[in-house]
Amino acid sequence: MASEKTLRILVAKPGLDGHDRGAKVVARALRDAGFEVVYTGLHQTPKMIVSAAVDEDVDAVSLSVLSGAHMYLFPEVIKLLKEKGAQDIQVFGGGIIPDEDIPKLEKEGVAKIFTPGATLKEITSWVRENIRSTKEAG
C-alpha cells in the first residue's frame, strides 16, 4: 500500500535563550498531529542544529526565537544547511519577531514565520500543506 511518508520535523531552540514553552507546545502539537518530531533541547548553535537536521534526516527545521536574535539565527541556519548541501530541508519558525522583519527573513529563505497568537491548528495545517518529504524520489 502506498502510504504517505511521515514527515520528520526538527524543533530547535537556537541561541542562548531558554524560554522553551513555545517550542515544546509546538513540538507536542506536531507530534499529536501525526508528524515525527525530534527536539534538539536548548542552547543550540546554528551549527549544532544543522548537524542534527542532517543526522536525523529531517524534512524541515522549526526554530523558536524570543530573544531578538532572529535576524542572525535564521539566516545562519539556512546558510549552513546550504553549505552541507541540505537546502531541501525547509526552515520555518516563530517567536517574538516584529512584522517588519518577516519579509526580510522570507527573502533570506525562511518558509514561514508564526507570531504570537498563532494557533496550533494554523501551524500543523501549514506544515501539512507546505512541507514535502526531502526523499520523495526514493
Binding site: 541561541g15 542562548l16 535563550d17 548553535t45 531578538g68 536574535a69 542572525y72 545562519e76
Partner: peptide
C-alpha cells in the same frame, strides 16, 4: 562566538 546576534537585545 556564542554571543553573535544577542548583544544588548534583551
Amino acid at each position: 562566538d556564542r554571543s553573535r546576534g544577542e548583544v544588548g537585545k534583551t
